[in-house]
Amino acid sequence: MGKYKKHIFYSLYLIAFAAMVFIAYTSSKYRPESVSVLFTDFSWLGNWPKWLDLPLMPFLNEGFDKLIREYGMFFEGINNFLLGLYTQMKNFMVGLPWPLLMIGIIALCYFVSGRNTGTTIMVAFCVFFLGFLSPRYWDKCIMTTCIVVIGMLLCLIIGIPVGIMMARNKKVRNALLPVLDLMQTIPSFCYLIPGILLFGLGAVPAIFAIFVYAVPPLIRLTDLGIRLVDKEVVEAAEAFGASKKQKLWGVQLPLALPNIMQGINQCTMMSLAMVVIASMIGTRGIGDEVLLGLQQLNVGMATEAGIAIVLLAIIFDRITQSYGEKIQERTHLKKDIKL
């Protein structure tokens, strides 16, 4: 029975392949006058023949056009919402006097890290240096931060529930794993294009690209974290009659939290990487300083902006990481699990 199934599966591959070759052949402009030519003149075996070309590009373009035609309103709505959120947030933070904002960030770090003085001093130092490097960078870093934060929120809202679903249901996991692989294999740059087509230029396509690029590790680590919870501990919850909800919120999520925090940390780092790349499609932020440096072959400028990005990354990393460590301490899990 199992063998039989496998054979059917293989023949399906064969049929699909034959169909694709047929489509490629019939839709190609360069095909020979008749098929019989192929069997008399074997020159097509030398170089890859022009007619053996799957018409994927026109197909995709058509599909994309249709998507925009029919769901344009939908994307417009998302665009307006995200753009509004971004503008509000940015204007608010830019409007604040810089010392106040700095104190705010330092206070946030202090409490989030569980009153860890070392981390706080380091973050304070980095925050100060952002403006100190060049006064222009202050506002630009705020823009970048806003984009990253909104992208992250999107990742959290969607990524964590999806991760939970994957951990609970084997079928969902098997269906999603290849999709996640694909999302992580496609060069991050490629996500910008659909972003532009769907949302135009600016901050929103960057947020979209961040989401697609940075959500897979969060989903994976949520899934992994939940599945790594000691089986007997989950069984204990079941044995005492915990409902699914009680099990999830009372046992699985709290114990998976260190892993989820690790996912959030990775997610942040990837968002930051993406937002720098996104400056190429006109997203304002610290990334365009690097771009400008490149275009003008101004090494000093590009390096200075590069340092600013590193500082920003350290700030994000330290804050999320230290929060994860604090949680780990609180839940009394072994501290040496690090990915």
Binding site: E232, V233, A239, P254, L255, L333
Partner: peptide, 12 residues
């Protein structure tokens, strides 16, 4: 109710 071989306590 059940007592587990490897205790099955909630570490948190």
């Amino acid at each position: 109710s059940m007592v587990f071989q490897r205790f099955g306590l909630f570490p948190h």
